[in-house]
Design a protein around this nucleic acid. Structure first.
Lengths: 200, 200
DNA sequence: TAAAAAACATACTATCTAGTATGTTTTTTT
DNA sequence: AAAAAAACATACTAGATAGTATGTTTTTTA
């Protein structure tokens, strides 16, 4: 096989498996051995592609975790629709679309934030950027809503953005404790009401 | 020294140090050796007082984590004051009272929820009870507020409770990523506005 | 006050861990 | 097709880990 493609393929495989294992069992408690067992390759391959374990963490954040948030929570906000509707559907559709695995194990970004957000500075920065991007997109949408007379002008856009993100990430953690979705349904009720109150 | 007192003292010491180390570095990555180095006792003492590592986790949750939430977030809700005011002051005073350590490392309960909330069933149950107690107290207060004509009758009490808890725990995680308190101040602005909206 | 039991201390084991050193195979370059 | 380099595989090391086995000391009980 072409060397570039082969190399890219292996790198990609390691990142995919790492992401899933970090998601299921946490970053610090997932060993390089466990990752490579999942890829059916060996340790030699890992250390050929990554300098150390820290590097795979960064790769997973940059190529998987960030993309997840961006595709599902940020991108939809740029559709050309009513701001209130966009907020409601983006948040609640996302919650409704989760697999049981995703519901049981929470949000990969939030998991990493809570596990390693207060350790290595590099992780802190990478994860912060995800939250900042998300915040920016929300602020932009809320400001647009204000201009188009859909959202009350006296609403603090940044505070609203932070409040939305916090509650969403919060409930994704709390959901881990329960075995069914009632907590998510209750949350959606609260969220919907909150967003309704933003209406002019 | 009296044996009962001595034993209680040691047990207490191990739990205190464990709590701090779990708080700072996580549960799974804190070793029994590390805990006992902090107590200046030895492994023999640990395994005399606790069956295994899982048991110290449960002890810490029952005697430290639960108490923290109860004392600071639940108990204040039972004061005989205006419901809206109680909500606002309880949440925002708590955020303002945190030490820099507590701000850097988030909420011990939330950390454990995110780290081990989806692993052992016993932990799941213990942590769920904390959240349920908190939820109940909030619902009670909101219902009281409705009766006393302070809070809108059409508000869903449970959904509001969940929304409050979620956002609070969420922001305590996200704060880990930042080096100052602006995110908390912004959150308080959003929270205050949210609670204001509940007013009749 | 002797025996028993509780509260620890010390020394060990088996397993897991990140990382390295050095091999072999595959692909690319000359 | 030979040499070089990239992509892996294998075998190892040093340190950490949960837990145990067996000691010694302190306190309580008989």
């Amino acid at each position: 096989m072409d060397q570039r493609i082969k190399s890219e393929h292996t790198r990609h495989l390691i990142i995919e498996k790492s992401f899933l294992l970090f998601y299921e069992n946490g970053f610090k408690t997932t060993s390089v051995d466990t990752i490579m067992k999942a890829t059916k390759l060996t340790k030699g391959a890992f250390y050929h592609h990554f300098k150390n374990k820290s590097e795979i963490g960064h790769a997973v954040i940059a190529q998987k975790v960030q993309k997840r948030i961006h595709d599902s929570m940020i991108k939809p906000l740029y559709e050309n629709k009513n701001a209130i509707e966009l907020l409601k559907t983006t948040f609640s559709n996302r919650l409704k679309s989760f697999s049981s695995f995703e519901k049981e194990h929470g949000c990969p970004a939030n998991n990493l934030i809570n596990e390693i957000g207060d350790t290595e500075e590099g992780y802190q920065l990478a994860l912060k950027e995800i939250i900042n991007d998300w915040k920016k997109a929300l602020i932009l949408l809320i400001e647009k809503g204000k201009k188009e007379n859909e959202i009350k002008k006296n609403i603090n856009s940044e505070a609203t953005a932070i409040y939305l993100i916090s509650s969403f990430e919060g409930v994704r953690g709390i959901r881990k404790l329960y075995k069914d979705d009632t907590i998510l349904d209750t949350y959606i009720t609260g969220l919907t009401h909150y967003i309704e109150q933003l209406k002019k």
